[in-house]
Design a protein around this nucleic acid. Structure first.
Length: 142
DNA sequence: ATTCTAACA
DNA sequence: TGTTAGCA
């Protein structure tokens, strides 16, 4: 069984996640409201988190502690998603239009990822400065 | 006993 | 964010 399936399996209720992450239920639910995590739900509407969700929450916690606000975290996750699938294929281009040779990068080296992140954060700093950095973003440019 | 949503001293 | 109220 592939690991990504196990990691995405809905397993733990919020109480366990609180202990595992050190986050309050309020925070966990709040991050969900902002789309940072999307735990599954039971029939009774109880949240069930997967290992992926927990990793995600730990990452969020880390970023929060470093002074990044939700807007910044959203952007970081966004640029990351972009790195995975730069573009989603449209309807199976059947007719004539010769599809643009989109070079899809499946894997990004850590350096490329850093560069991508740096660029992303700098653009944000261009106009979203006050919004993005509450603390010192310098840590991200190491 | 736990979790959920909504609301606010 | 914490906390509390009122449900399920």
């Amino acid at each position: 069984m592939s690991s990504h399936i196990r990691r995405s399996m809905p397993l733990f209720p919020i109480g366990i996640v609180m202990q595992l992450t050190g986050l309050s239920a309020r925070q966990i639910r709040y991050y969900e409201e902002h789309g940072l995590v999307s735990p599954a739900r039971t029939e009774g509407n109880r949240r069930l988190f997967s290992f992926n969700d927990i990793d995600r929450l730990l990452e969020i916690k880390d970023l929060i502690e470093q002074g990044v606000n939700l807007a910044g975290i959203k952007q970081i996750f966004a640029s990351r998603k972009q790195a995975e699938q730069p573009e989603q294929p449209k309807q199976p281009n059947k007719s004539n239009t010769p599809a643009t040779p989109k070079v899809v990068k499946q894997d990004l080296s850590e350096e490329e990822l850093r560069e991508l992140l740096r660029t992303e954060l700098m653009q944000a700093g261009r106009f979203n400065r006050a919004t993005l950095r509450q603390g010192d973003m310098a840590r991200f440019f190491h």
